[in-house]
Design a protein around this nucleic acid. Structure first.
Length: 563
RNA sequence: UGCCCGAUAGUGUAAUGGUAGCACAACAGACUCUGAAUCUGUUUGUCAAGGUUCAAGUCCUUGUCGGGCAACCA
């Protein structure tokens, strides 16, 4: 609906845009812009990836270029086809299209081997039999130079032969590696003769058992970018130290040379962005799966009811910089509310039911009232809501001893039942424990439709569902995944699992008006005065399950209620 | 104690030597058949010290603080 006008008049000129603008100015890449999003298929995409995806695809889009989707599948022991498929699905859902440019790093393995052989022939790479432990010792530490491998000056012929035998599968995993010959004294650890190839007898999700040697990230990534004629290779800050290596390989091999640019990854309060931690939550059953609506994964957010538009808007508003920051979860929530407010239909649903009986309404009487589908969009029309003598209202909308400025139901107080009529509380029914189990009231027959017949002020309006017509349903109420704002601040030794929020998921029985009960999975509604909800795929015919995407903002302050 | 990067309201960011803006959050008020939305207003900021300049958030120096780097992970 807003296809043509998504670009703001003055897009924020962040540093990546500046670099691209300068490169286009100087003609560095002939005015061409080609980016790539290169996930490793070892987990599901999360909101942090969304930032990268929006940047990668966004920069290409803005400059009439293209963006490749590339599986960076250089480590078969961690990767899986399940992840490959999920990644494609999620990027597409987010709203991006890579056209024919879907690639696998593993499709370049043959060319990468040639590059490795070329380095060997140039005397710039050698086979090294140091064990992992020895290698660690030889590498040195940042403050002290490393030592050269005993085989560092092996002949080209020997290296060629050994590397060939590595490829043929003559050696077991870890027996030896191919290393670049750079500088064991470099203050940059990554330049101390880094590993190019390691032996891994493992089935690869894309190439099967074609290979038993696999290139490392440092060697592979620049080559992938180069082969694909990428112009701007955008990655996160931790790769900054790797850039000299990235540059070294391409310069040494005399290959086309993209520009690597690093930006700060997204950190969101009260959640984790680490693929490893997310994997642990899934594997250990601490959540119900990758798409658990508590998860910051794209599929989790999708199931929770987030729209791709809201996530893109979020990625736009957080900006792109080179310094680490912690973005407030409230900003993400603001973005969904803003989007959902414009598009979602309003219905009434009750999540903490309390019976309301209208004493002067006929026991077998019923009628329907007209409700607006979306006040933000008159073209959305209206629908009718059934009404009868007994209703479900929200427990929070009744107080036996009302605090000041409580505009809802209380003994003797009058409220409007949204779209229906004005009712005045006449009393309550309590159980043996003294709890209010039913509220009694009378209604004003002249107020049908919710109007005030004599113009009297009725400050409070509450939502309701006709008990006779209501559809029982399951309400899954979500809250922040963790109780700690910044997981990075957890003291050493403190396990992140201990910071999980037990209240991140609360399942309660509720009721919704019939019009909301038949919706297909994925349908989003606003439950008036409560929040935005989406229909979960666990729904069964006649028994919908709703996920609360986010609450409505609430400026009412209940006394003693937690913030 | 090595190398690399960074530092602007509570949070996220803009200002590209020339009036420190915006958004979120918070707090007031208006409006309201959603205590929502919408509208109005308020509070809070250039890490520090020097230097260059008519003019510094921006350039230089030093310091402080924060992050990253020592997988045959990416």
């Amino acid at each position: 609906m807003n296809e043509g006008q998504q670009e703001k008049s003055s897009p924020n000129l962040h540093f990546v845009r500046q670099i691209i603008a300068e490169d286009n100015q100087s003609g560095k890449f002939g005015g061409r812009v080609c980016t790539r999003f290169p996930p490793e298929p070892n987990g599901y995409l999360h909101i942090g990836h969304a930032k990268a995806i929006c940047l990668d695809f966004g920069m290409a889009q803005e400059h009439g270029g293209q963006c490749h989707l590339r599986m960076d599948d250089t480590n078969p022991v961690k990767e899986d086809v399940e992840y490959i498929e999920a990644i494609e699905r999620d990027v597409r859902w987010l709203g991006f299209d890579w056209g024919p440019h879907f690639y696998f790093a593993s499709d370049y393995f043959g060319r990468m081997i040639e590059c490795a052989v070329q380095l060997i022939k140039m005397g710039k790479a050698y086979v090294c039999e140091l064990s992992a432990e020895e290698w660690k010792e030889y590498r040195g530490v940042p403050t002290r130079p490393g030592k050269e491998s005993p085989t560092r000056n092996r002949s080209v012929a020997d290296n060629l032969d050994l590397f060939d035998r590595m490829r043929q599968g003559e050696f077991p995993d870890g027996f030896c590696v191919l290393r670049a010959k750079i500088d064991m004294a470099s203050p940059n650890i990554h330049m101390r003769d880094p590993v190019l190839y390691r032996i891994l007898h493992a089935a690869h999700p894309h190439t099967g058992d074609l290979w038993c040697v696999y290139p490392t990230y440092d060697f592979a990534h620049g080559l992938e970018d180069s082969f694909e004629q990428i112009t701007h290779s955008i990655c996160t800050l931790e790769f900054e130290v790797h850039r000299p290596l990235y540059d070294w390989f391409l310069e040494t091999l005399g290959l086309y040379h993209p520009q690597q640019i690093e930006f700060a990854r997204l950190n969101l309060s009260y959640t984790v962005m680490s693929k490893r931690k997310l994997l642990e939550l899934v594997k250990e059953g601490l959540v119900r799966g990758w798409d658990d609506p508590r998860m910051p994964t794209l599929c989790g957010l999708r199931r929770r009811g987030y729209t791709p538009e809201s996530i893109r808007a979020f990625c736009d508003v957080i900006g792109v910089t080179k310094f680490n920051s912690l973005t407030d979860l409230a900003l993400l929530e603001h973005c969904v509310r803003e989007d959902l407010n414009k598009r979602s239909w309003r219905v009434m649903g009750v999540i903490k039911p309390l019976k309301l009986v209208i004493e002067n309404y006929p026991a077998d009487g019923e009628e329907t009232f007209e409700a607006v589908n979306n006040p933000e969009d008159p073209s959305a029309g209206t629908h009718r809501v059934p009404f009868s003598r007994e209703l479900w209202i929200e427990q929070d909308d009744f107080m036996e001893m009302p605090q000041k400025k409580f505009f809802r139901l209380a003994p003797g107080q009058e409220v409007r039942l949204r779209y229906a009529c004005l009712v005045t509380c006449t009393g309550v029914v309590k159980n043996a424990a003294g709890e209010v189990v039913e509220v009694r009231c009378t209604y004003d027959p002249l107020s049908r439709g919710g109007t005030s017949p004599d113009g009297r002020k009725v400050k409070g309006t509450i939502h309701w569902v006709s008990a006779r017509h209501a559809m029982a349903s399951e309400m899954r109420l979500y809250d922040r995944l963790f109780t700690v704002e910044n997981l990075a601040d957890l003291p050493d030794g403190k396990d992140f699992r201990e910071a999980l929020n037990p209240a991140a998921l609360t399942v309660v029985p509720g009721f919704v008006e019939p019009s909301a009960g038949q919706a297909v999975a994925g349908t989003r509604f606003q439950f008036e005065r409560i929040g935005y909800f989406s229909v979960d795929p666990d729904s069964k015919p006649g028994f919908p399950v709703f996920n609360r995407t986010v609450t409505l903002k609430d400026s009412y302050k209940a006394v003693g209620a937690p913030a």
